[in-house]
Amino acid sequence: MKGKVVSYLAAKKYGFIQGDDGESYFLHFSELLDKKDEGKLVKGSMVHFDPTPTPKGLAAKAISLPLE
Protein backbone atom coordinates (compact mmCIF):
# COMPACT_ATOMS: atom_id res chain seq x y z
CA MET A 1 0.00 0.00 0.00
CA LYS A 2 1.07 3.59 -0.51
CA GLY A 3 0.86 6.23 2.17
CA LYS A 4 2.18 9.54 3.45
CA VAL A 5 4.23 10.12 6.60
CA VAL A 6 2.24 12.40 8.90
CA SER A 7 4.77 12.37 11.74
CA TYR A 8 8.11 10.80 12.66
CA LEU A 9 9.99 11.31 15.92
CA ALA A 10 13.59 10.39 15.08
CA ALA A 11 14.66 10.42 18.74
CA LYS A 12 12.02 7.79 19.56
CA LYS A 13 12.22 5.98 16.20
CA TYR A 14 8.47 5.96 15.55
CA GLY A 15 5.70 7.89 13.85
CA PHE A 16 2.54 7.51 11.81
CA ILE A 17 1.58 7.03 8.17
CA GLN A 18 -1.76 7.88 6.60
CA GLY A 19 -2.52 5.09 4.15
CA ASP A 20 -4.23 5.56 0.81
CA ASP A 21 -7.24 3.93 2.49
CA GLY A 22 -7.48 6.87 4.94
CA GLU A 23 -6.41 4.80 7.95
CA SER A 24 -3.57 5.71 10.33
CA TYR A 25 -0.69 3.21 10.64
CA PHE A 26 2.00 3.04 13.33
CA LEU A 27 5.49 3.34 11.82
CA HIS A 28 8.59 2.01 13.60
CA PHE A 29 12.18 2.36 12.39
CA SER A 30 12.72 -1.40 12.75
CA GLU A 31 10.27 -1.97 9.87
CA LEU A 32 12.21 0.28 7.46
CA LEU A 33 13.69 -2.01 4.80
CA ASP A 34 16.67 0.30 4.09
CA LYS A 35 17.80 1.85 7.37
CA LYS A 36 19.73 4.52 5.41
CA ASP A 37 16.36 6.00 4.42
CA GLU A 38 15.57 7.11 7.99
CA GLY A 39 16.56 10.70 7.20
CA LYS A 40 13.89 10.77 4.49
CA LEU A 41 11.08 9.94 6.94
CA VAL A 42 9.72 13.46 7.22
CA LYS A 43 6.18 14.81 7.18
CA GLY A 44 4.80 14.49 3.66
CA SER A 45 7.18 11.74 2.49
CA MET A 46 5.51 9.06 0.38
CA VAL A 47 6.18 5.45 1.38
CA HIS A 48 5.17 1.91 0.46
CA PHE A 49 4.29 -0.55 3.23
CA ASP A 50 2.42 -3.69 4.15
CA PRO A 51 -0.64 -2.82 6.28
CA THR A 52 -0.81 -5.17 9.26
CA PRO A 53 -3.41 -5.41 12.03
CA THR A 54 -1.91 -5.85 15.51
CA PRO A 55 -3.45 -6.15 18.99
CA LYS A 56 -2.69 -2.43 19.50
CA GLY A 57 -4.09 -1.29 16.14
CA LEU A 58 -2.84 -0.94 12.58
CA ALA A 59 0.89 -1.03 11.86
CA ALA A 60 3.07 -0.49 8.80
CA LYS A 61 5.48 -3.34 8.04
CA ALA A 62 8.19 -3.66 5.36
CA ILE A 63 8.35 0.12 4.83
CA SER A 64 10.18 1.44 1.78
CA LEU A 65 10.51 4.78 0.04
CA PRO A 66 9.80 5.00 -3.70
CA LEU A 67 12.79 5.24 -6.01
CA GLU A 68 13.58 8.83 -6.90
Rank of each mutant, 00 (worst) to 15 (best):
K2S: 13
G3V: 02
G3E: 00
G3N: 01
G3S: 01
K4N: 07
V5W: 02
V6N: 06
V6C: 12
V6W: 08
S7T: 12
S7I: 15
S7D: 07
Y8V: 06
Y8A: 03
Y8N: 02
Y8S: 02
L9G: 08
A10E: 09
A11W: 12
A11H: 13
K12G: 06
K13R: 12
Y14F: 10
Y14C: 07
Y14T: 05
G15Q: 00
G15H: 02
G15Y: 03
F16H: 04
F16Y: 08
F16P: 00
F16M: 07
I17R: 00
Q18C: 13
Q18G: 05
G19D: 03
G19H: 01
G19F: 02
D20K: 05
D20I: 10
D20A: 11
D21Q: 03
D21F: 03
G22R: 05
G22A: 04
E23K: 15
E23W: 10
S24C: 15
S24H: 11
Y25G: 00
F26Q: 03
F26E: 03
L27A: 05
H28P: 05
E31H: 07
E31G: 06
E31C: 07
L32P: 00
D34N: 13
D34V: 08
D34I: 07
K35V: 08
K35Y: 09
K36I: 07
G39P: 14
K40P: 02
K40L: 10
K40Y: 09
L41E: 01
L41R: 00
L41D: 01
L41V: 05
V42Q: 11
V42W: 08
V42Y: 11
K43G: 06
K43N: 08
G44V: 02
S45L: 14
M46D: 08
M46N: 09
V47N: 01
F49W: 00
D50R: 13
D50S: 15
P51I: 09
P51S: 07
T52G: 07
T52K: 13
T52A: 13
P53K: 14
P53A: 12
P55I: 10
P55M: 09
P55L: 10
P55H: 09
K56R: 13
K56I: 08
K56D: 07
K56C: 12
K56H: 11
G57W: 04
L58E: 03
L58N: 08
L58Y: 08
L58C: 08
A59L: 13
A59Y: 12
A59I: 15
A60E: 01
A60T: 02
A60C: 03
A60M: 00
K61E: 04
K61F: 09
A62Y: 11
A62Q: 11
A62R: 15
I63N: 02
I63A: 05
S64R: 14
L65G: 04
L65P: 04
P66K: 12
L67R: 13
L67Y: 13
L67V: 13
E68P: 12
